[in-house]
Design a binder for these strands. Structure first.
Length: 823
RNA sequence: GCCGAGAUGGCGGAAUUGGUAGACGCGUCGGACUCAAAAUCCGAUUCUAGCAAUAGAGUGGGGGUUCGAUUCCCCCUUUCGGCACCA
């Protein structure tokens, strides 16, 4: 008896569960809450990708198990639907992006349900829904009102093939080291000078760092975010130029202790003093150098780190500590957009400085010596040792010297402590159509005005959402103007004072909507506010957050920033949005290579569900390995899972009113305990193994008692929700027409196990002689050592090894192992 | 260069606080059923030697701690991912 008509069954139950709201979460329930979140999909293309299934399967198993274990579980889903794929498809097919999104979400919704995911469909959200983006716009205005959203003219990343600017976080290196758009992994980017909206994320750098101590994220994510934020504590020192105007050059260093070893200053080619400091004598060389650096793209400048280049300006500066005169050079390895755009060169203690000094014959003075009298090679870059050649600071430790040097600089006014960060402003405007309109206007006099105040509901409810208008043509252009600019009727408006004004025509990046979607799930239909505070207090923070590693610097950083800002305004109850995070691994094709259409090794979940059924595919995804591992697809494993389901159907014919045999009861209780523990520890691969072990044992039995069968179905319910439901209904002789939520297996309590049953009374332990296993012996649980000793010493296999020898030590670890040490 | 995570049979992967390494599954081999194949079922399967009992080796490599190490410590190799002239 096999059940192969899974398609019809999947559809039937998916529909019934949805109609009866089997997976609905309850606000303010007295049960303990669990908010389990998996990153919501971007609906593009025809259907689900196997990556989606990799991402949602384990969280779904967990959510189902938690629900059965008595938790009030919130496991929601929605659509992150603004952005390029829908827009590009729209341009190509001449269908409105809203229509494309609708078709895609309809398809996704159906497939997700038929794959057996128990989402709370009552809370489905869509970032492109005006009722949703009304609040995205409202939040943006909050940033604007608090001075965190700003219009800035600076070099930004422009992507010509996507025809929009991109944020730093959206620019990555491809396999060849070229800078490309993260979106598609191939479109090259270039620098352009443009006036754009930014969110001032660096102002939250310290809070974002501190917040990491309060959350349970993988080490890799924490380390990566810390590195991306790039906090660096140091000192700014003002060197005086030896010229009639006594110009000051501000340098930044984290190694003030090495200042007596500074033998040169270097300023960036873009530094404002370049022209002034260049003497007549060096003018030609400097101009040549500047021309050469300008030709090099930023990419070349960053990539070409092997060979240092530079040119002397002809000017000198005075080290304020020892009045030493040092030459001022220009080099493109000094970056204008970090620190002060000027550095002191200490060749003896910095690898880059050393390289530069060697090439241009700059003096090298060693000022730090390691504590141990060991031979060292310059540059000595370790931050340990004591000072030499540093006048009154000589012989001090690095820490002592650092403190004293800072004190002196601050007292005498030629320096100050300073912290710099690598993290930059978040570039927040895009020149594309399919995004949230930015709710600001530009007055004729150049002033920017918000279209409403976020403090006044009467006002903002009238003008928000600022609807995305229709335009004759969404095609983006190369001149960095947005398609919205083509709708002049929409663009022309009036300011509050009645003067003519133009609307901001850039749109928000598609990351905007995902910055707060987890808040909206909590209260998706609220028309008064983005989410009710009491409901947020009940549900927040997200207890477990599953997603992709690619979002470490993007979504995961952006949304933490967004949330922390809202917390500071008192709008959300927690400092951090996500208490715990796990990144999903990657699924490789059957050939062990990354899946790609060109390689033809892409696994299509629709196809697999068609052949093997959703339950089998879900079991296999759980079985193939840990959630965060990189795993190779093995069709055989999927077949084995299909076979497991067939075996379960066959087993159902053995269900009897008689009591199960003792061995089966033991196996059952162990299975219930192990599977439960393993799901709780997210080890669903071994949980599936435990189910297989039980099935293997049960197959050898003549019959299975109803109690064990009923518990077994509950245990498999999170993994194989369809077959579990089907067999549960059969077991109870329920009629489908009379289905109600409380008859569903998925709301039944998780089965208990008998602790006495899971502990074996007779156990087999290993017997070692000198640490080598020589035999095994059967003992009673907690058997006395003397008895175990007698038993083991008499074993022939042991006798053989100890016969003429003296027993030095007899180690018996209770119920675990015996080790006989002989000489 | 820096940061993070890894390295266990032919393959995916298992192994509470250190306590019988290789669970479970795939694959392979042998057998049953069949005219035959598929499907299914039964058995074997870390490697080496041996007909076998058995012995030796074995969790990337080398040391160390321990009665005992996949697990703890030190050094090294290597794979994957990320960052990278950030002063």
């Amino acid at each position: 008896m096999k059940h192969r008509d899974f398609k019809q069954m999947q559809r039937k139950w998916a529909q019934a569960w949805r109609e009866h709201k089997v997976y609905a979460a309850e606000d303010f329930s007295k049960k303990p809450k669990k908010y389990i979140l998996a990153e919501f999909p971007y609906p593009s293309g025809k259907s689900l990708h196997v990556g989606h299934m990799m991402r949602y399967t384990l969280p779904d198993v967990l959510a189902r198990k938690m629900r059965m274990s008595g938790y009030n579980v919130l496991f929601p889903i929605g659509w992150d639907a603004f952005g390029l794929p829908a827009e590009n498809a729209a341009i190509k097919t001449n269908v409105h992006p809203a229509q494309i999104v609708k078709e895609a979400t309809d398809a996704y919704r159906r497939v997700l349900a038929e794959a057996g995911y128990g989402f709370d469909w009552e809370r489905e959200i869509n970032t492109t829904d005006p009722e949703y983006y009304k609040w995205t716009q409202w939040f943006f205005l909050k940033f604007y009102e608090h001075g965190l959203a700003e219009l800035k003219e600076e070099p930004v990343w422009w992507c010509e093939s996507l025809k929009t600017v991109l944020a730093n976080e959206e620019v990555i290196k491809d396999a060849n080291g070229n800078l490309v758009a993260e979106r598609d992994g191939k479109s090259p980017v270039e620098r352009r000078m443009l006036k754009q909206w930014v969110l001032k994320m660096p102002l939250y750098a310290d809070k974002l760092l501190e917040g990491l101590n309060k959350v349970d994220f993988p080490e890799s994510v924490k380390a990566a975010q810390i590195n991306w934020i790039g906090r660096s504590e140091g000192v700014e020192i003002y060197f005086t130029v030896d010229n009639p105007e006594k110009d000051k050059i501000k340098i930044f260093t984290t190694r003030i202790d090495t200042i007596y070893g500074a033998t040169c200053l270097i300023i960036a080619p873009e530094h404002q003093l370049v022209t002034k400091l260049t003497t007549q004598e060096y003018k030609i060389q400097v101009e040549e150098y500047l021309a050469k650096t300008q030709q090099r793209t930023e990419f070349e400048r960053l990539a070409d780190t092997k060979e240092k280049t530079g040119v002397f300006t002809g000017s000198y500066a005075i080290n304020p500590f020892n009045q030493k005169k040092v030459p001022i050079w220009i080099s493109d390895f000094v970056l204008m957009n970090y620190g002060t755009g000027a550095i002191m060169v200490v060749p003896a203690h910095d690898a880059r400085d050393y390289e530069f000094a060697k090439k241009f014959n700059i003096e090298v003075i060693q000022v730090i010596k390691p504590n141990e009298p060991i031979e060292i090679q310059l540059p000595y870059t370790q931050k340990s040792g004591y000072l030499i050649n540093s006048e009154e600071y000589s012989n001090l430790t690095i820490e002592e010297a650092t403190n004293q040097l800072i004190t002196k600089a601050e007292r005498e006014g030629f320096g100050a402590k300073k912290v710099y960060y690598k993290i930059r402003d978040w570039l927040f405007s895009r020149q594309r159509y399919w995004g949230e309109p930015i709710p600001l206007i530009h007055k004729a006099n150049g002033e920017v005005e918000a279209i409403c105040s976020t403090e006044n509901p009467d006002e903002y409810n009238k003008v928000l959402p600022l609807l995305l208008p229709d335009v004759p043509d969404y095609t983006p252009s190369s001149d960095a103007t947005s398609p919205l600019a083509k709708n002049t009727e929409w663009v022309n408006t009036v300011a509050k004072d009645g003067t003519p004004a133009k609307r901001e025509t850039n749109t928000m990046p598609n990351w905007a909507g995902s910055c707060w979607y987890y808040l909206r799930y909590i209260d998706p239909h609220n028309s008064q506010t983005f989410a009710d505070m009491e409901k947020m207090k009940y549900w927040l923070p997200v207890d477990m957050y599953f997603g992709g590693a690619e979002h470490t610097y993007l979504h995961l950083l952006y949304s933490r920033f967004w949330h922390r800002f809202l917390f500071d305004l008192g709008l959300v109850p927690t400092e951090e949005p996500y208490a715990w995070r796990m990144n999903g691994g990657i699924l490789l094709g059957p050939d062990g290579e990354k899946m790609s259409k060109s390689r033809g090794n892409v696994i299509n979940p629709d196809e697999k569900i068609e052949i093997y059924g959703a339950d089998a595919l879900r079991l296999y995804i759980n079985f193939m390995g840990p959630y965060d591992a990189t795993i190779v697809w093995q069709e055989g494993g999927l077949k084995a899972c299909r076979k497991l389901i067939d075996d379960i159907y066959i087993l159902s014919s053995k269900v009897s009113d008689k009591e199960s045999s003792r061995p089966l009861k033991v196996a059952y209780n162990k299975m219930v305990k192990n599977v439960g523990d393993m799901i709780d520890n997210l080890k669903t691969n071994t949980a599936v193994s435990e189910i297989m072990i039980f099935v293997n044992i049960a197959q050898k039995e003549e019959y299975i008692g109803k109690d064990e069968w009923s518990g077994f179905l509950k245990v498999i319910a999170p993994f194989a929700p369809f077959i579990a439901e089907e067999l549960w209904q059969t077991l109870h002789n329920y009629r489908f027409e009379e289905f109600t939520k409380d008859k569903s297996i998925h709301v039944q309590p998780w089965p208990d196990y008998d602790p006495a049953m899971v502990i074996d009374q007779t156990i087999t332990i290993g017997v070692q002689v000198n640490g080598k296993l020589r035999a095994t012996v059967e003992i009673e649980r907690d058997e006395a050592e003397s008895s175990v000793r007698e038993k083991t010493l008499n074993l022939p296999a042991v006798q053989k090894w100890i016969k003429d020898k003296q027993i030095e030590n007899f180690i018996y670890v209770k119920n675990k192992i015996v080790n006989i040490v002989v000489k």
